[in-house]
Simulated scan of single mutants.
Amino acid sequence: MQKKVNPLVKMALEFGPVLAFFVGYLVVRDDVFVIGGRAYDGFIVVTAAFIPLMLVCTGILWRLSGHLSRMQLMTAILVVVFGGLSVWLNDERFFKVKPTIIYLFFAGVLGLGLLRGQSWLQYVMEGMMPLQPQGWMILTRRLMLFFVGLALANEVIWRTMSTDVWVNFKTFGLPVAMFLFFMAQSRLMDSHGIKEEKE
Rank of each mutant, 00 (worst) to 15 (best):
V165D: 12
V148K: 02
P130K: 14
R187G: 12
D41L: 02
M74V: 15
Q185M: 15
I102M: 10
V56F: 02
N90S: 13
M71C: 08
F15Q: 04
G108E: 08
G117D: 03
D190I: 13
I77E: 05
V5W: 02
G173Q: 04
F169T: 05
S162G: 02
G127L: 01
Q132P: 07
R29L: 04
F94V: 03
K195P: 02
D190N: 13
W136V: 07
A76K: 12
L55G: 00
A107W: 06
S86K: 03
A151D: 03
G83C: 08
V46N: 10
L139Q: 04
G42A: 12
P130D: 09
M54W: 02
W166Q: 04
T58N: 11
I60D: 11
G37F: 08
M161H: 08
V5Q: 10
I101N: 04
L114S: 06
K4R: 05
M54D: 09
L64K: 00
R142W: 10
E197Y: 05
L19P: 02
D190V: 13
L78K: 05
L26R: 15
P130N: 10
L114E: 05
L78Q: 10
F181R: 12
L89Q: 07
F21M: 14
D30W: 03
R29G: 03
F22C: 15
W62P: 00
I60S: 03
L112N: 01
G117L: 01
V156G: 04
R29Q: 05
I60N: 05
F182P: 08
V80W: 06
G193P: 09
L114K: 01
R29C: 03
I102L: 15
V34Q: 14
C57E: 09
